[in-house]
Design a protein around this nucleic acid. Sequence first.
DNA 1: GTCAAGCATTTGTCCAGGACAAAGATGAAC
DNA 2: GTTCATCTTTGTCCTGGACAAATGCTTGAC
Lengths: 300, 300
Amino acid sequence: MNRTLMNIAAVERETGLGKDTLRVWERRYGFPRPERDQYGERAYPLDQVEKLRLVKRLMGQGLRPGRLLTASDADLAQLGAPVAVPEVGAAEGGVSATLVPLIRQHDLPAVSNALRQTLHRQGLQHFVLETVSVLNRAVGEAWMRGEIEVFEEHLYTEQMQALLRQAIGALPQGEGQPRVLLTTVPEEQHVLGLLMIEALLTLEGARCISLGTQTPLADIALAAKAQRVDIVALSFSAAFPSRQVLPLLKQLRARLEGSCDLWAGGAGVERLRAPETVRLMRHLPDALEGLASWRREHGH
Amino acid sequence: MNRTLMNIAAVERETGLGKDTLRVWERRYGFPRPERDQYGERAYPLDQVEKLRLVKRLMGQGLRPGRLLTASDADLAQLGAPVAVPEVGAAEGGVSATLVPLIRQHDLPAVSNALRQTLHRQGLQHFVLETVSVLNRAVGEAWMRGEIEVFEEHLYTEQMQALLRQAIGALPQGEGQPRVLLTTVPEEQHVLGLLMIEALLTLEGARCISLGTQTPLADIALAAKAQRVDIVALSFSAAFPSRQVLPLLKQLRARLEGSCDLWAGGAGVERLRAPETVRLMRHLPDALEGLASWRREHGH
DNA sequence: GTCAAGCATTTGTCCAGGACAAAGATGAAC
DNA sequence: GTTCATCTTTGTCCTGGACAAATGCTTGAC
């Protein structure tokens, strides 16, 4: 018998739920109910960890933990079961209707080819503005509905990343204006948003300098100074805890020079109120508009 | 006056030190000594956060927190000050002697060109085996000595990543054997190790399937099954807490099918004892040797 | 029936202070 | 100098309490 038990740190890694949260759920709702090891420390069986991953996913659909954790296993399984996919939706003819099934069939070469073909047919700008953003949303929602697994999302991301990086690499990299620093804060690991913006802005002749994901605030500020950038652009995914976004932006704003603009975009800022000193980009085209208005204001 | 105060969660993000650690340091060593906000919660001034980042860096050199946190500010500053770079070292003529200064001067185009040129001169295999591994180590150590900042490391990583991905994209992707799944566990965000292995193995005709970084164990196992891979290869950087590596490998091993090999490589496994069921790759060429021996055993 | 304002509940994160295993340093014996 | 045993340091876990912010609910006005 292969009974693996995980300690609380491993469960935090595996589920993304904090240690405090795991303990307080146990106290309040009676779940999870880990065993104890020889030292009295929590030892979670695999099936409880799986249930926690399910709960986490369902919370993304607006369900609250109090309900989910006190519900019976049967009710939970029903909520969690992938809904029969409305194949009618395929009639819309969108790319996502073609691609999500390919991802689910684990046909990587087909996914890669379909993406490449679509890019070449549409051109980079249209591809990013219409196809990639729609696909990202479709893949994310398919995960929340339980239709695809996390690793399938990773596979999709990796294919798309390779394609976008290749396309960006093929663009001319001049000494354009403005200079834009791209990155995400620590804990935010989604990279596609950055690559999309990098593609759009580079196409328009801006000079993009990417730090990749998860840069500490102090280093974002240092990099902005060292690279003498005009704009710092951050990307927040829907998965990022939204309560943290505005405080973070405020902290970073205080560390940047006044002449440097601060932009924040991605699904994680769609529902936020913009402070005066930060420019929120709720949708992708806002970035192009923002670029144009920066150039107007700075006489280019 | 611009006195930003950070709460304990923000300090954790910024420094990478856990909340428990921050509180126990305060209790034991009297540092950090945050103020309290209106609700009695810790509020860390910026200079204390900076000192914590310095301490974290010095700990990478083998210094222990008990010494560092009770040392005077002056002693600490002396330890932390970048040592005058022994320019004599430049006489070795290695690539790192050329590149690290370019990184420090923030001359991105020069870094990019130097890397590209070296790659073309050496060929991909030699470039990965000799140049990239040496550079990664040099950059990491330069950070530990305080010669370069985190953001400069990010810039280097981003340039190298673009180059390696481009080189990999140009390789023929056949239906080779074995099929290898590449990824890192959650909390391990270093991507260059993965790309290096992907380049080496793809060059030798293996079929590499990368999940990118930070895949939960459950999903690594699911992906291995769905993609019917022969080998799962994980990368651990020196920054990954080494105490966690072996338990992680054991957990994953238990979830993989017996016919699937498990490899672990990178600076994070150099000093570990290998369990029987996992193959530790302490140095890069071990991967090539491992590939050859897999093929011998499976009659290819 | 719709909307806003006020009230109640839920929820995540913080706190204090205790405990202890694992890793690292130290010293004794060979 | 090397090996083994002991002491010290250090990170992470524990319990149980507290409370702000977010969310949901009710009431009342139009």
